[in-house]
């Protein structure tokens, strides 16, 4: 199988899977709660397919810490369903997400302390910071999935996935970059559906799951590949910028202005480190194309 065909399959098949699930949800639109339950399956199932294409099915427990993401995607679908709970019970989603996220971060990064790459105190601090930052990102941005309709939010998430894929790729992990790119492609199919059906909503569950998976990929690229801390921080900031529209001053803006503002922020926050990484890669005058 050629490299190009493999890359196309890695991004294309998960995106097609997600698209089919979303379309299925569209046809049973009156049952909005059921549609909300299908949406995290689209993201989580798509990610599982992508992971299978890139790494194969990992053993349980995985020998490689980065493969915990595969098992998180499975549990993440359930977390996505919890995100769709009525407002009165939504605290349960927040609490369970924090618990599962903490455990995933510990499983994912404990090996770096065990191997001596991180000192125990520093490592623990990093794990706590990453857990809190990811949880805040998810809790703050997930409501956008419920409030925003059309192609805008899927486009911004697709851009975040695509840009972070490039950033991770140029920081020495093609596989983690491919997985981030696949998440971008899954959201990309959401753009097409949102364009076609202006009432299309990703839903809280799908947005929260996509963001957790992206943030875990960023964190893994920081821990296990060469993604610098400042690039990681900018990726988180770019994620947080999606929630800006829920602040009062931004709510008064025209929807197109809100979209363009967030897209410009995203380009600045992730595009600049991506450009710098690309320049650094080119500066080595290496002929190594992965």
């Amino acid at each position: 199988m050629s490299v190009v065909l493999q890359a196309a399959l890695t991004a294309g098949v998960p995106a097609l899977f997600a698209g089919l699930i979303w379309l299925l949800g569209g046809y049973i639109a009156p049952l909005t709660r059921f549609r909300g339950l299908l949406s995290p399956v689209a993201v989580g199932g798509g990610y599982l397919l992508a992971h299978d294409f890139v790494h194969g099915r990992p053993p349980f427990p995985p020998t490689d810490a980065t493969h915990w993401l595969f098992y998180f995607a499975l549990t993440g679908i359930v977390l996505g369903w919890l995100a769709e709970l009525p407002a009165d019970y939504r605290w349960l989603w927040g609490a369970v997400t924090l618990l599962v996220l903490s455990w995933t971060m510990v499983l994912g990064f404990k090996p770096l302390i065990q191997s001596g790459y991180w000192m125990p105190v520093n490592g623990t601090q990093i794990i706590v910071i990453l857990t809190v930052a990811t949880w805040l990102l998810v809790v703050l941005v997930a409501p956008n999935g419920e409030q925003e309709q059309g192609a805008g939010l899927p486009f911004l998430l697709a851009a975040l996935g695509g840009l972070s894929a490039g950033l991770i790729f140029y920081n020495k992990s093609a596989s983690l970059g491919q997985l981030a790119g696949s998440l971008g492609a899954i959201m990309g199919i959401g753009v097409l559906i949102g364009w076609w059906r202006r009432t299309f909503r990703l839903g809280r569950g799908a947005v929260s799951l996509a963001l957790i998976l992206m943030a875990l990929l960023w964190a893994m690229a920081y821990g296990y590949a060469e993604l610098p801390a400042h690039s990681l921080a900018l990726l988180y900031l770019a994620g947080f910028s999606l929630a800006l529209t829920r602040l009062k001053p931004f709510m008064r803006l025209h929807p197109m202005a809100r979209f363009l503002l967030r897209f410009a922020l995203l380009l600045a926050l992730v595009g600049i480190p991506l450009w710098l990484s690309f320049q650094a890669y080119m500066a080595t005058q290496s002929e190594y194309p992965y």
Binding site: K172, S173, S175, L176, S286, Y288
Partner: peptide, 19 residues
């Protein structure tokens, strides 16, 4: 090739930070 060596150290291959 330093680029390739960094890639080989990454989780794509040897995952040297864990192993």
């Amino acid at each position: 090739n330093s680029q390739r060596d960094d890639h080989l150290r990454s989780p794509d291959f040897f995952n040297v930070r864990q192993y």
